[in-house]
Design a protein around this nucleic acid. Sequence first.
RNA 1: GCCGGGGUGGCGGAAUUGGCAGACGCAGCGGACUUAAAAUCCGCCGGAGUAAUCCUUGUGGGUUCGAGUCCCACCCUCGGCACCA
Length: 818
Amino acid sequence: MVAKYNPGEMEKKWQQKWAEDRLYEVNEADLRPKWYALTMFPYTSGDLHIGHWYAMAPADVHARFKRLQGYNVLHPMGFDTFGLPAENAAISRGIHPFTWTMQNVDNMRRQLKSMGAIYDWSREVITCLPEYYKWTQWFFLKLYENGLAYRGKAPVNWCPLCQTVLANEQVVDGFCERCGAPVTRRDLEQWFLRITKYADELMQHNGIDWPERIKTMQRNWVGKSLGTEISFALDRPGVDEREIRVFTTRPDTTFGVTFMVLAPEHSLVAKLTSPDMKAEVGEYVARSQRLTEVERLSTEREKDGVFTGAYVINRLNGESVPIWIADYVLLSYGTGAVMAVPAHDERDFAFAKKYNLPIRVVIAPPGWQGEELEAAYTEPGTMVNSGQFNGLPSEEGINAITGFLEERGWGRRTTIYRLRDWLISRQRYWGAPIPMIYCPNCGVVPVLEEDLPVLLPEDAEFRPTGESPLKYHQGFVNTTCPRCSGPAERETDTMDTFMCSSWYFLRYVSPNCNTAPFDADQVEYWLPVDLYTGGAEHAVMHLLYARFFIKALRDMGLVDFDEPFTRLFNQGVIIAQKQKMSKSRGNVITPDEYVSELGADAVRAYLMFVAPWEHGGEWDDSGISGVSRWLNRVWNLVLGGYSCSGEVSPAVQQKVERELSRIRHQSIRKVTDDLERLRFNTMIAALMEFTNHLDKVKQAGAVDYLHWTENVDTLLLLLTPTAPHMAEELWQRTGHSYSIHNQGWPQWDEEMAKDEEITLVVQVNGKLRDRIMVPTSISEAQARQLALESQRVKAHLEGKEIINTIYVPGRLVNLVVR
RNA sequence: GCCGGGGUGGCGGAAUUGGCAGACGCAGCGGACUUAAAAUCCGCCGGAGUAAUCCUUGUGGGUUCGAGUCCCACCCUCGGCACCA
């Protein structure tokens, strides 16, 4: 009787053994080629759920596969720990964020270990520990030194619930990405990182293998647009400014400008507004500031605005044009001022209709007879009412007008971006303090490198007040100026968590380095990351920030590569009860009970089998039982003993052995190929088919013992990345020496994998009429002959004339008849 | 509205990139073992039809000897972006 498959005990046993033997610890002295396999580290929100496993288990399978293939594989794991969720959770539970976070780290590490991954735990990184955030602060100082970090006053996104400012990337449709509260705007002094310096480079994804989807999202996010900046002359008593500049992508419509619109926050508004319009304008400005981002950005809202009483001159035709303000114009985009061409822009058209402003056609639609337009005409056309440019196709007009303006110094070609600088100040406790000091004498002074880290005081009151909790911690705030040694105050804001995750992948290579954020030699050896896997939700946040960081570090001479992640792959989402898993929905599935009942190997395999990795899928208990059954069958197949039947004729035995060998080689090829392409679902299917075939062979007892063990060994090796515990146990029980994880990946022979016989499909007029087993070596003439001889085919040729025959070698004969 | 992914059995999904549609698995049905059940094993399993055969990859058209795969139009769905001048 075969011992029962008991994954619980067995898995624990091997995990302990591997840890004791430091089987998965790696170092750069290894002579094998390196492979850096990285999975996005989890945020320490509490329990690990099956969604985390979905991200991590297949990634581990691939990393194990590379390891068996002979690579020196670094596959590290760590924890992203700073940030609002931890702080909010700690507040609601009345415990310190550090305590809460580290409890979660312990729990999640335990759960992760039960997965049986090859994580090198000696390299674990935890972002909220001073040993780590010291270097996050160090990077901030470097960015500051290089002019990439600056302090500025700006209208910022403010979440009234989280009581902090948010980066643009954290505002989703006008709502806070974290808590869902509507975001309002505030003017605050904040720290920014100059990511816009790299706007152009961030749009390029040269030499990296990333999903098209993510690249498109990043390009859209950066939002490059080529256009013209045009100066309109301003002549206003008491106003120093002599012009207002606008940005447009349609300079060809400049003769059609009938008004100008400024953003309500535009710095000229107060100066320009005529006395009689002051009250109305003031009220409008105040109102638009009160509006939440959602309300303001709603496209359904009717556009409104107020006349300022002032005018600018359109230099092209000398016309005086009224200046309005309206909140559909955004201060943050372009120059915060727009030339309005109602005839050729939908927004301007609606605005002009509402306020009875003139609509002048300057681009004639095809067949236009001078009649009034029903709607804005935004397509190309012929220029009219445009002075010397009349008759020109509008596409040419873009260049012609821009050139004309440039010659006179009235305008210039320019490129603008939607991307804004990255706002990293957070008025919250649970983050890395920004290492800056404000001195009454010396101004803004960076903390000295040797004084890092600026420690986050444990005893600060961390309840949100709208200002940084650190502000009220005297021991923290009061310090001395590094320059003049006089009394000074610390910056009390902390950094956006995305700062921490922008460089963690560099820390893994030398986690204990205490003289620098990383050991340069190690980085040179391991980086860039060969395969980075994680969710697509990070497309315009983490993934963009990390790229920015690397480019900035490269320009500082700290690293010598351009892109951090050579290949990126986004797995899908695992849902439960047709919905995304979340605590609030109460449908979170924890791996623990499945692991103890069916084994980690079964959970790993099931997650890969449900669907293609990039799709994600529905967690289904009856689905996992199928995979579990299969693993049990493998167990029994391998341990159940094998005996030759003795009744099989040598000829039959030889045939069966040849077939088995062919299937073995085909299985190796299929599994290898699927793993390489991260097609885990079909890889498992191939393993199942191989198992099924071995089952049949075993029942017949038709091959000799040597053939049998050879094939069983291959099955175990192919199974190793997927079911590392079971493979190890069966490897040992079949008399091999420890460890299967140090074996080489099986190779296939293309000759051996070749089919000897194929099913020749015979079609008549493209319809399947017969299938004939033929040797692979069959000639075209023979194939045609067999097709014509087929009884089934003959019935369809009755009384018809064959006018054409298509022959596809190894596949089919198609007889075309009339 | 714009950009991208996707629509295949009762279900999850396969299909060597234009060549046997439905691999593998779940569920279901029938059988073996069992006093019985579970587990396990064997068989069947897109639809219609006694059968020959016909129909079938969201819908409609097209290209082709041949279309799930390519082209055109439309419908549905999931992501992303959305007053960006």
